[in-house]
Design a protein around this nucleic acid. Structure first.
Lengths: 202, 202
DNA sequence: CTATTTACGGTACGAGCGTTGCGTAAATGA
DNA sequence: TCATTTACGCAACGCTCGTACCGTAAATAG
């Protein structure tokens, strides 16, 4: 049986599930450094070679785990561009904060970006991960851009708007705070951010 | 002789210089992954323990190397806030691009952030590095904020300006492009960025 | 039923980070 | 001069990532 046309012994779905479960548990509880391939193999009751048959490196496994945790946030368009952008920023911030919380024991290491930074670094180490992440961001970006475009056509935004830079500013500020400054981001900050971007500094 | 009050054998300044030189060479030529502690020790003609006596981890050594490479860019105030901010952004981008180029052979891995991302991750792994970087950014941030504050008092910027968010937007967009998007940043982009931040989207 | 193909488990290994222990070298203080 | 203190070189080790090899298990093709 198995998949039509596939020869040989099929991959074990149980192993898949057990590995991902163990890896998720370790990553969330002990952070990126606490995610040990040998520990995952032992907890999943699987040989280490079985891990590497599915994911070529620990980075790839970690990316797979985090990708599974990120529900793809839809963008809502209520017609109020200020509210829509703020909601969108809040969703992005939520994803960041969720990763940011991984592997942190209370009181310890309270300002670092931990897992988020490790995943960014993983993109730098492996071209295929960078490509994957690029596609994800391109898709999300395209959605947000449509939102902006509609608002612009309604006349709610200036006609000569640089939507690429606008999105860089918005998302960039969030990532900058989480990754570089180490400050958490909440809805209040998202509101200030959107206000600044819309109203300008002059 | 040696330092007044210091007992025992003094640290070798030659060793210091040789280590930093070897580490810089390796980091720039082969990137973060190509920076091997044992290779550094061998090239510097020094025992590995001598490295670890000075820097507790490879991350710390790498940070020291990069910090030495970053000339501290002064912020100039010509009275034209648009120009001053653009110049400042260009300097920040220059530092990023310099690190971004490290360890990349032509044609290979052309979109990643490499060393920049690894250093951000290093901040997440070690509290003392995060603190050090925090101080550096706070200092730089304070200078930029003074620049903005002066412009605001001149009446060149709106009175109710959120200068914290403005700087997050500007620097954030640069880091976002380099780290997440993988796009290089140049003066033209800095101009678009400042224009968008000053003029607003409405 | 048999041959082929692919997955699995287990072990061993190389490479790199970081640590430990020990004998030796270079400085200071009495 | 001699004890003390700190740095150095060297070798060995434990840990983790990732790879190689091998015998075995589970599927398909004929």
């Amino acid at each position: 049986m198995a998949e039509r046309g596939r020869r040989g012994r099929p991959r074990s779905a149980e192993a898949d599930a057990a590995i991902v479960a163990a890896a998720t548990e370790l990553l969330l509880r002990h952070g990126y450094g606490g995610l040990s391939m040998e520990e995952v193999a032992e907890r999943a009751a699987v040989a280490k070679t079985t891990l590497y048959r599915r994911w070529p490196t620990k980075d790839h496994l970690a990316v797979a785990v985090v990708a599974r945790l990120q529900e793809d946030d839809e963008i809502t368009d209520t017609g109020d561009i200020r509210k829509d952008l703020t909601d969108y920023m809040e969703k992005v911030a939520g994803g960041l904060n969720r990763m940011r919380a991984a592997g942190r024991r209370p009181g310890e290491d309270s300002t670092s970006a931990g897992t988020v930074a490790e995943l960014v670094a993983a993109s730098g180490r492996h071209d295929d991960i960078a490509e994957l992440r690029g596609r994800l961001y391109a898709r999300r970006n395209a959605l947000a851009r449509e939102l902006i475009e509609r608002a612009r056509r309604r006349g709610d935004l200036r006609a000569d708007l640089d939507s690429e830079v606008l999105l860089d500013q918005l998302a960039g500020a969030l990532y900058y705070r989480v990754l570089i400054t180490g400050t958490p981001v909440d809805r209040a900050y998202a509101e200030r951010l959107v206000a600044a971007a819309l109203d300008g500094a002059l």
